[in-house]
Design a protein around this nucleic acid. Structure first.
Lengths: 341, 341
DNA sequence: CTGTTAGCGCTTTCAT
DNA sequence: ATGAAAGCGCTAACAG
């Protein structure tokens, strides 16, 4: 047995009585430039030896790895995982394997991640990263590989971009609340910093409120990790404002915030819907379990991941169009927490 | 510019005025067999060219890839993700990269996954797979790579194994319930099939009940996906039995079942604790939000992943001990759903 | 100590 | 249509 235990292209060549080049041609150009009888002999030999080519060697020689590098800001985030899942599926279907790099929320590691992945000759990148310092731009373009951004834009980055249609989703959400009689709205987001999705959603919220003014009033609260007192206070203030017949509702900017608000309400002993309207972004599995049910904006995470992978693979196959923006629609799932009066 | 854009070992060699072999030695054997002045020259050249070796080429030549293949039965499962996270961290710390393969619950793909990963010369495997048909055994040993199993054993597989200490965890759980006055216990699990963790937990439950007999009675219910009626019925039956002063409690075998039971209770309009005691396995984020709080057995998922990776890396570094079994302790988190009377 | 030489497994001109 | 040979970037004998 060979050191690796696996048959090599040389073994197949010998078994078939042809040259390595011929076997390689059979692999890559199939029927195109091979006489049928030779092709048949090679095919038999391959089957007999259970040969399968080494992607590593192929990558080294041909420059392609059939690998896609996926960089995720925080794999703890269910949203990221859901996207990852969709992307991974699409990649596998297209014959690509995913190499995963988790930043664990340490944005400094972005560069490291890209370099590491590039070292393995990944054919392209799917990036769902922090995006504060956009040094990614250089890093990626430096390696000359195509990339697609998910959920978070990088200013000045000339690539495909896939994300929830934040503006439309927010519009539906606010519309639903206003229609249900809610007049005092509070939007809670994680600190916006440079994260584009957070800024877009916040901006969209502002626009929606503006569109309904002066019937409706809206505020934004940045919810910092660990400072739950501040959140409680913000909720209390919201409820104060609601007193004179204007129902109040809170809108959460993402899954993390949704959870924090739910925890805050539990601390305060309030009921969703009854004491305060509530719509969460992202649709956690527990949304239907809690109180009268939690209304949410569900993201098409699987489709987002899938779309991102598909975009990238199209580029890898040579598509040379202008950078695309794919905004997928969210779905407002109405449950008890935002019921009309 | 070179085709890849990156400097190669040859470039460095030329810049330093030495041979490629010397550069390679500098990389791999550092100070050992190099004269200080040459080493210095190489070091300068490397820095000047921002050279970093191609892991691909190294893998091809030296047989090592610094890659670890991680196969996961279902990345949708938060447990798997948590483990993945821990493992990925430990791998990165040790200079390894993770190649992820998600089976998406299709056990047939196990073989495909192993072969694909082996093709990329992964140095070893971390397996959290289905384990019904243990053809994995052959596949892995065939490629002659070390592997560590997480959560699920494969009978006859001669490798390290990392998991929750199911027996101890179940013992604590049942002890807690019995002490709290619960006498009619129902253990709900997904269909056991060949999955070792499910069988172990079920067996442990049986043993615990036996230890408390005849004071305590216990039953096991296999909860099939989609057949929620059957689950409702089982819960009703449990409550029937509880009537004559014997409090009843249900124990969930994993996170999926925990969720299903919570949903069933919502359907039935029952309250945890009050109407029925409840302890879940795995500690979902919503455990504290629902009703009086859901008691759970929290798994040390991060430690499990970390330990698995560490085990594997030790093997890669040459450790040649007998297969180890690392059972990590769970933690019973008591909340309102299993309160004593 | 250092350079030379051969591969690792595959693709790809360039001849034939 | 097929084979021979060079080379992808690196490591590992083998010589000096």
């Amino acid at each position: 047995m060979k050191p690796t235990g696996r048959a090599t292209i040389a073994d197949v060549a010998e078994a078939a009585g042809v040259s390595k080049a011929t076997v390689s041609r059979f692999l890559n150009h199939r029927e195109r430039l091979l006489s049928p009888d030779i092709a048949a002999r090679v095919e038999v030999a391959i089957a007999a030896l259970a040969y399968s080519p080494s992607p590593m060697a192929q990558a080294l020689s041909h420059g392609r790895s059939r690998l896609i590098g996926l960089i995720v800001a925080d794999i703890t985030n269910p949203y990221s995982v859901a996207v990852l899942r969709g992307a991974e599926k699409a990649c596998q279907d297209a014959g690509y394997l995913v190499m995963l790099f988790n930043l664990g929320n340490e944005s400094e590691r972005e560069r490291e991640a890209i370099d590491a992945l590039a070292g393995y000759q990944v054919d392209g990148f799917i990036l769902n990263t922090l995006g504060r310092g956009s040094n990614v731009v250089d890093a990626v373009t430096l390696h000359g590989k195509p990339a697609v951004l998910v959920d978070r834009r990088h200013t000045g980055m000339h690539t495909d971009f896939v994300s929830l249609d934040n503006h439309a989703a927010m519009q539906v959400t606010c519309g639903h609340l206003v229609e249900g009689g809610y007049r005092e709205l509070l939007y809670v987001t994680e600190p916006q910093k440079g994260v584009s999705s957070r800024r877009e959603r916040t901006a969209a919220f502002g626009a929606c409120v503006a569109a309904h003014e002066p019937r409706v009033a809206g505020e934004v609260f940045e919810c910092v990790e660990g400072e739950s007192d501040a959140l409680d206070e913000a909720l209390r203030a919201l409820r104060q404002r609601a007193r004179r017949g204007r129902r109040a509702a809170v809108v959460a900017g993402n899954a993390v915030v949704t959870l924090r608000i739910a925890q805050a309400m539990a601390r305060l002993g309030w009921q969703f819907g009854a004491d305060l309207g509530f719509v969460g972004f992202d649709d956690p599995e527990w949304a239907s379990l809690i109180g009268p049910g939690l209304s949410t904006v569900a993201q098409p995470t699987d489709a987002i991941g899938r779309t991102a992978a598909t975009c990238l693979i199209e580029r890898l196959r040579g598509l040379d169009a202008a950078p695309r923006q794919l905004l997928l629609p969210g779905e407002l799932v109405v449950r008890g927490s935002s019921q009309a009066l």
